[in-house]
Design a protein around this nucleic acid. Structure first.
Lengths: 339, 339
DNA sequence: CACCGCAATCGAAGCGCTTCGACACCGTCG
DNA sequence: CGACGGTGTCGAAGCGCTTCGATTGCGGTG
């Protein structure tokens, strides 16, 4: 039942190595021979045995992908990302081995040690991530989605969240806002120093300070409707002067706005809101939220590209930050005139 | 750098085959030899080459998992499922190769043909799924999450959604409700005849008819807040007599209830609501919704178990339906007395 | 005491592929 | 016209592992 390269060779009247060269293109083959071989492959339904190939070529044609499963990561975004990685990997003739965060550094060692993958892509990277030294010594190309403190020898891809933070502030400032606030990810995200959250906040603070307004309020927020409502209440109670709000929390953005409106304020009449995160969430809220989108598909594409390039010698170390883009929707306007 | 079984053998003063037998346990090895070999493995940091192993044993120790990426599948549930599959697979010393729906039948052929996986797990199965004949002829153990029309020779695992539909009705009926309605998945889900949606509805209808009440209203609903609000409006307008509602739509349950309350009705005072789906969504709504949970982790565990058992000859064909459980929370009560 | 059976180990033959060096052939150039 | 550089193909040597006899020492039996 399983047809091997020898079967194909026999059927096409050539040697196995010729079949191999037809498939890999590593040596020139006459047009006629190539045709015959390809035809035999088709007729016999031949598929190279992945293991044999990996053994002989020390290439598995597989990428390992580590996905987070923390409760405080927005799952749809992670999923979009994972699916895009698979799709892009297939474009480069690679498959994807799925690892969970829970496997940790040992999982990486295992996969690398047994040559199951040619490169590793890691999502949800922390500033001081325990897996980073391991990745470095593994000798496999590694691509991080996210940027740790020490990026030596590693390839990192991310949205430029620092700039995203600034961009939101500048957008609001351009409309005339001075009194800003920030509602962010759950506290745990900051505590474990997840790169994107920390950097967004840094960009936000830096730009806000440059405005010369009051020190902006910063409220972490769990990824639940109830937490969003609490954050809204706190915001209105403790920082009533706020006219511009930046929200980086997929689950909280919509309910937060709803709560603000329920309290009798108008968005954007009294409070302008800019979201950072999955664009579809922002776009389908009421009102549609101006937002800086997270280009999961493009990040995935870059990550796969870097990983694959890393295989052919090109050491793809370095940090790639995609420029953020703010889409202006219906949640931002000039601040209300002072009473 | 890469240490092979021969290195271990040399270091331990035995032959390579002995090392192999220590690792596989397929022949008896003296305690002393075993100890020495394991020690050498540890010292040298030996990891068997996955490809070589697969080649020699025709076992890849890998499961292929096909995940859906349709917009109308509730993503967090799919993700919980995928992560659980990986975790359970590791318990059985297997890794997981991630495939997307988009690869379709060809992806299955490719993976099977090149011996990349020992078994295949497929999520989001339709009643007449095009991949099913392919799975059958592949000669690999296949486990479906979901139940197609023709289950011959296939292993299927799912929640007993028919019973779940009945269970919701019985719960409501037990409280005295007669006037029921159902808000379901997006229309596309029914159009492509996704098994779980169709079966839930069948169970619901059957049990509702048995009650002898009016033919219940059935409203499909997109997975958005706005659609949920529209469904609520339609329900109140077109079916004002409804006192008991079953909702099978993760994204719509909470906003639907919110909209009903915003319209001045009380839940459960005027309308009792039972949800079917991810338990956490139901539990964190206000009020907490009585619900039939989707045991993603347990389904994943069964699926992996069946897949792995399929490897050792045991043909695990057959349908496994997990019994649904209804958790009574704060969204169901006797119907209001007739005015 | 010759013999048997069992436990423990070894050696060698693959598994299906890639890749390197050889080789044959052919048109060219000096 | 003989040496030369391509081109297209082949054969064989692995890649690192599993697995199937075969072999060696045993203690135990008849």
């Amino acid at each position: 039942m399983p047809v091997s390269i020898a079967d194909v060779a026999r059927h096409a009247g050539v040697s196995p190595s010729t079949v191999s060269y037809v498939l890999s293109g590593k040596r020139s083959i006459s047009a006629d021979t190539r045709r015959r071989v390809l035809e035999s492959i088709r007729v016999l339904g031949y598929r190279p045995h992945a293991g044999a190939r990996a053994l002989a070529s020390s290439r598995s044609n597989t990428l390992a992908l580590v996905v987070p499963l923390r409760s405080d990561v927005h799952v749809p975004v992670a999923m979009r990302f994972a699916v895009s990685v698979v799709t892009r990997a297939r474009d480069h003739d690679h498959d994807v081995l799925l690892l969970t965060q829970a496997e940790g550094a040992d999982g990486l060692r295992r996969v690398a040690g047994s040559s199951m993958a040619d490169a590793i892509i890691v999502m949800d990277v922390e500033i001081d991530d325990a897996r980073i030294p391991v990745l470095r010594e593994l000798g496999l190309p590694a691509v991080l989605i996210g940027v740790p403190a020490d990026t030596d020898g590693l390839a990192c891809v991310d949205l430029d969240f620092t700039e995203a933070g600034r961009l939101c502030v500048r957008h609001l400032a351009g409309l005339g806002h001075r009194d800003l606030a920030f509602v962010g990810e759950p506290p745990a995200v900051y505590e474990r120093r997840t790169g994107f959250a920390e950097r967004t906040l840094a960009g936000f603070r830096e730009a806000a300070r440059a405005l010369g307004g009051p020190e902006p309020a910063v409220l972490p927020c769990e990824q639940t409707r109830a937490a969003a409502e609490r954050a809204a209440a706190e915001l209105l109670r403790e920082h009533p002067g706020t006219t511009g709000l930046v929200v980086q929390n997929e689950a909280a953005a919509e309910p937060l706005v709803a709560a603000v409106r329920a309290a009798g304020l108008s968005v954007p009449g009294d409070l302008s809101v800019v979201a950072i995160g999955a664009d579809d969430v922002a776009a389908s809220a009421t009102p549609a939220l101006s937002s800086v989108g997270l280009p999961a598909e493009e990040l995935a594409e870059r990550a796969v590209e870097l990983a694959v390039r890393g295989l052919d010698g090109g050491t793809p170390a370095g940090v790639t930050l995609l420029p953020p883009t703010l889409v202006d929707r219906s949640s931002t306007a000039p601040p209300p005139r002072r009473a």
